[in-house]
Design a protein around this nucleic acid. Structure first.
Lengths: 112, 112
DNA sequence: CCCATATTTAACCATTTGGTTAAATATAAA
DNA sequence: TTTATATTTAACCAAATGGTTAAATATGGG
């Protein structure tokens, strides 16, 4: 995957997570799928507002919508979080390396 | 920490990461501190634009600004990523183990 | 077919975001 | 003290965000 497409994915992923309501929606669908009306009932918010949040989560790839009759059930695509996890892990690796550098630096200093 | 303050922190944290330029800035300061002008030089963007991005990262807690004479150096607060990592790690039990290892690792580092 | 229900779209609004250029401020250097 | 340099603030702009209400569009059940 090219870097800019990944960037775009990460942009959508991280910014979709940057909203409390959306993280709460994900918490809700964590255990079982919900339809929009049931989801909206828990947030003091209009149906279209919730619908929009779900659209954003859906476009980020975090939830999957499946129609069953009149209802559309939203479920959690956990695996979509992986690139975000990877990105953060990568920062951690860099952190590790910075510690290593620091350690080397100190080691070199003390050896001289 | 109360839930809504944590929410607000996560909102800032995740949405500050939801921009390619800001993630690139973090990549830049990962190895060594940079001043704004040096940072801006690498992005085809005006100084005030970069300054604003840095303000956002700074308010999210991801970078620390320190003045040295005329320069302000930006460095990476890696440990600020922990709540984001924790949030993601809570999303799926399957991932818990690997994240716990990572979290413990970072916790040990930050506590020293 | 008609009706009720589930969801989305349209139109609107206020605020935020991400960029610009120009002016202001802070500090060091001469 | 004057001047140069580093950074921020001000003022502006277009587009995106997060919400609303009202209308439109499925879909299933009588």
């Amino acid at each position: 995957m090219s870097t800019d497409i990944l960037s775009n994915k990460l942009d959508k992923l991280f910014s979709s997570l940057g909203d409390t309501t959306r993280r709460q929606i994900l918490q809700k669908v964590k255990t079982k799928p919900y339809n929009i009306i049931k989801l909206a009932a828990d947030f003091n918010m209009s149906l279209p507002a919730v619908s929009k949040h779900i659209k954003i989560l859906s476009e980020a790839g975090l939830i999957k919508k499946e129609r069953e009759g009149r209802f559309i059930y939203c479920s959690y695509n956990f695996e979509t979080l992986k690139p975000a996890m990877d990105w953060i892990s990568e920062q951690h690796n860099l952190w590790d390396k910075s510690f290593e550098r620091l350690a080397d630096h100190i080691k070199n200093k003390t050896n001289k």
